[in-house]
Amino acid sequence: MVLVYIDHEDQQLKSSSLEAMSYGAALAKQLGVTAEALVLGTTPATLSDLGKQGASKVHHVAVDTLNHLDVKVNSTVIAEAATQLNATVLIFAHNINGKALAPAVAVKLKAGLVTGASSLPKTENGFIVTKTVFSGKAFASVKIATPIKIIAINQNCYGIHAADNVAEVIPMSFNIPSPSVKMTLVEKVKGELPLTEASLVVSGGRGLKGPENWGILLDLAKELGAATACSRPVSDSDWRPHHEHVGQTGIQIAPNLYIAIGISGAIQHLAGVNRSKTIVVINKDPEAPFFKAADYGVVGDAFEVVPALTAALKNSK
């Protein structure tokens, strides 16, 4: 059985987890087994809806202390659930929680782990998973040799696909170990879409000259319903908050659309965005390296092009 770990936050199932569910369902079909989901903690989301991504059952450990990530505790619960349910493959989203949990679960289950998977495994002859390496500059095919296998998938590598199962929700209960960490404060940026969950991203670089010029970028982002990002020098100069910094040393994202405005396209910047499906570059310098990595390019002054693009989007509605 393929067991998919489902993450939730702000009363909703994360879209990266729905994608993991779709991926898990496809893998289960390939292996001729069922795909089931595991949810820890409490959420008002309708868990039986996971059938729409191919789950036949949803195992639910409805203990609210598990809403908070305590890797030591939560990984123990996941590993025990996987053992009880006889899971042979576990799927996680390679997001913040998945990155923290999957390796610990792998240790507890003595399972081989591949993180950052970019496609479905090849299973005709062994079990081989392709993952991104060298910050998106290459792929590696990795063979997992252990009886239990764990895969953490890159965001937006597979997509969310519709199925028509109705999943049965089954409560599970455990003796939950005592907490190993105490959360004392949560600070969230209000009303903003987290970058890693966004499918459209508008990003600005030093070419915008200063924080006072961000209005044109924010207008475009608003018109598109996109999240905003920036290059490293922009966040280093405090023109934009640090959580917007994408790249090798910032956040790595893979949205459907990445619009880069006044960003030169340094290799360390590309390392954070090169998995984007479609890249649009707006830069006044036709020699800017970013054009080599772009699908669509506009050679022009951002201060004219960006408002024109926003207007064109408005008109097209």
Partner: peptide, 12 residues
């Protein structure tokens, strides 16, 4: 530590 869309303080 970083969480999606913000940060969180933990004591351990």
């Amino acid at each position: 530590r970083e969480i999606e869309g913000g940060e969180e303080t933990n004591e351990v």
